[in-house]
């Protein structure tokens, strides 16, 4: 009798835990879908790099995205104007360098380098979604947010071995996201705020990524946001990079 009860309790606990896992992963997938679940997106962004002493630098970029894997980013201001980055897969990234008049593939070892001086890395720019690479676990929840802990899936080696992300209930918008290094120390914190209406589409318009170690931060302001414009696959090719020089 006791054995049956124990097995039953265990079984129920396992299935409950499994249900939790599935829910957490589904929450994560829905969050990704809200962020990137359109056929395509076109954004004009301004990113502001803010140093710990308060000094700022600003650059403008235009980003085209199709699905979750294809991105084309063109720099439209600053000393990097004319530079363009093409992402066609998790580790397939090309960059057009106007000074050299050349398209170069970005090697994976370079993915950990910062993206144009910001706190974002090349890896983060080329791999914006979480659900393909992380398993999610629900840490806790309150009335407004689910708090998930993400750890890499087997075979995946993302830059951050652990991520904590808050997902807003109802909207599935991404909230505060904390990145940890291998030792468990906090490395970066990203916050999303200032929801705005972009032609009927509502989303957070400000993303701030702060490096906890240096006090340095990068702010992304979404100046315009359009979806489902019918962007073609041909736009996300080296040919397009060359055409746009």
């Amino acid at each position: 009798m006791k054995t049956v009860a124990t097995v039953t309790v265990l079984g129920l606990w396992v299935s409950f835990a499994f249900a939790q896992q599935e829910d957490a992963q589904k929450i994560l997938e829905k969050m990704d879908a809200v962020n990137y679940g359109y056929d395509d997106q076109t954004m004009e962004l301004r990113y502001t790099i803010r140093d710990f002493d308060g000094s700022e630098k600003q650059y403008d970029i235009v980003m085209y995205q199709k699905g979750t894997n294809k991105r084309l980013i063109r720099f439209t201001s600053g000393e990097v104007k004319g530079m363009a980055t093409l992402v066609v897969g998790p580790s397939r990234m090309f960059v057009y360098l106007p000074g050299y008049n050349k398209v170069r593939r970005v090697a994976p070892h370079a993915m950990s380098q910062t993206f144009a001086g910001s706190d974002f890395t090349m890896d983060e720019i080329s791999n914006p979604t979480y659900s393909p690479r992380y398993n999610a676990k629900l840490l806790k929840e309150d009335d407004n947010f689910w708090y998930l802990e993400l750890v890499p899936k087997e075979g995946e080696k993302p830059l951050y071995p652990k991520v904590h992300v808050a997902v807003q209930k109802g909207t599935y918008w991404q909230g505060e996201t904390t990145y940890f290094d291998a030792s468990g120390a906090k490395v970066k914190v990203m916050t999303c705020s200032e929801p705005k209406d972009f032609g009927g589409l509502r989303r957070n318009s400000v993303i701030v990524l702060r490096d906890v170690r240096t006090g340095h931060s990068t702010r992304l302001d979404i100046l315009s946001f359009k979806v489902n414009q019918g962007l073609k696959d041909s736009m996300f090719t080296e040919r397009e990079l060359i055409w746009g020089r």
């Binding site: 580790s91 090697a107 994976p108 070892h109 993915m111 950990s112 080696k157």
Partner: peptide, 12 residues
């Protein structure tokens, strides 16, 4: 040619 190995530990 240019070769970009998958591993981040390996040079291009």
């Amino acid at each position: 040619f240019s070769l970009s190995p998958e591993s981040k530990q390996v040079p291009g």
